[in-house]
Amino acid sequence: MQIKANNVSHVYMPGTPFEKAAISNVNVTLPPHTFTSVIGRTGSGKSTFVQLINGLLKPVEGSLTVGDFTITKHTKQRELYELRRKAGMVFQYPEHQLFEETILRDVAFGPENYGMTAAEAEKTAREQLAVTGIGENLFERSPFELSGGQMRRAAIAGVLALEPQVLILDEPTAGLDPQGQEDIMKMFNEWFHSDKQRSVILVTHNMEDAAAYSDQILVMDSGRLQFYGTPGDVFSRQEELMKLGLSVPESMRFLSKLGAKSGREITIERFRLQDTVNEIVSFLGKD
């Protein structure tokens, strides 16, 4: 699905003493089957922007098109309801939404809401739990008996069970240990690549993840889309990012320091460890 924002603005609590502009005049197109990361400081409008994409919020001005859906401030709840199925949303700490007696039933909650029969929903739930790596022996357990990492996976399965085409992830690895973070990101990446219809939008503070998985990165600040492009484009604007309180992947930071110190030309758009090593080796070998 293609996602397009046309001059989108959103304001919280309009017309009250607490009115607050959240995002202003965002224009961007996310082509079908792309992995997009959204980076920016806390409060920069990232979360608001992605909630507009799955219809949890409506734009106050402008419009969004998500596949066949067009959302403006006049769009009816009914239509947004359908959109939310196509664009699944994993919130920060998604395990806080678990509520059913068993994991299986919790995952089946979404599909049942969208009119699947209990049997169909259970089948989908089983499949998605397998995708997220929850063993069958846990299906009948209470979600509150699981470890933190397992709860996170079960909650994610609950969103995948809607069989969305766009998966929106709001800091999905927050609070996990390094191994857990890596495993979860790999899982999302696999989900994305296993079907050409799928897109991912990742809100993250982790520049390494943004660099490693994205086709496109959006940089937000004070509710505005500052600039966007491929990881190479975005992270080459190191100074601008620093001004926005953001950093670049460690590999790039290292290479640019090495370039500055040695006074030689170095390609700094290297995000993987091995690429960085090769760059350094060729740096040493040159001359």
Partner: peptide
């Protein structure tokens, strides 16, 4: 939490009063 459940298709605005009350269990 309301938003998270809405994202999973919970419906707080449609249906009978009883259904809407039930929708708050999650």
């Amino acid at each position: 939490i309301i938003k998270a459940q809405m994202a999973r298709g919970a419906n707080f605005t449609h249906g009978s009063l009883w259904r809407r009350i039930k929708a708050f269990v999650p």
